Amino acid sequence: MQSSAYGASLAGGAFDLGSFVKQPQTILRCLSWLFSIVVFATITAEGYTNPSTEAETKCMFNGNDSACSYGVGIGVLAFLACVVFLILDAYFPQISNAKERKFIVMGDLVFSAAWTFLWFVCFCLLANQWSKTEKSSVADAARAVVAFSFFSIISWALLSYFAYGRYRQGVSEFEQEYRDPANDHNTPYPPAQFAGGPTGYQQSPYPNRQDQPGEYQPPSY
Rank of each mutant, 00 (worst) to 15 (best):
Q202D: 04
V21T: 08
S66T: 02
Y167M: 13
L126Q: 06
A14F: 09
R168Q: 10
D180M: 03
R209C: 14
G170R: 01
Q23P: 06
L158S: 07
T42M: 05
L10G: 14
E54Q: 15
S66I: 12
S155C: 03
L118H: 10
P205N: 14
V145Q: 00
G200M: 01
A67V: 13
H185K: 15
V171M: 04
W119T: 07
N186G: 08
A11M: 06
A113D: 11
P93K: 09
Q193V: 13
T133H: 08
T49I: 14
N62V: 03
R179L: 07
C122W: 02
M1E: 04
F61C: 00
P205H: 04
A41V: 02
C30K: 13
F35P: 09
A98E: 06
Q217W: 02
D184H: 09
I43T: 10
T26Y: 11
T187K: 14
F103D: 15
S155M: 07
R143C: 12
K132W: 06
F111E: 06
D16G: 06
L109K: 12
F92H: 09
K22R: 09
E46L: 15
I37Y: 02
S96K: 11
F15W: 13
M106C: 03
V171R: 15
G12N: 09
K58R: 14
I87S: 11
P188F: 12
E177T: 02
P93S: 05
G197L: 02
S66Q: 10
L126A: 04
Q23N: 12
A8T: 14
Y164F: 09
M60H: 04
P190K: 11
G7Y: 04
E54D: 09
S152Y: 09
G73I: 08
D65V: 05
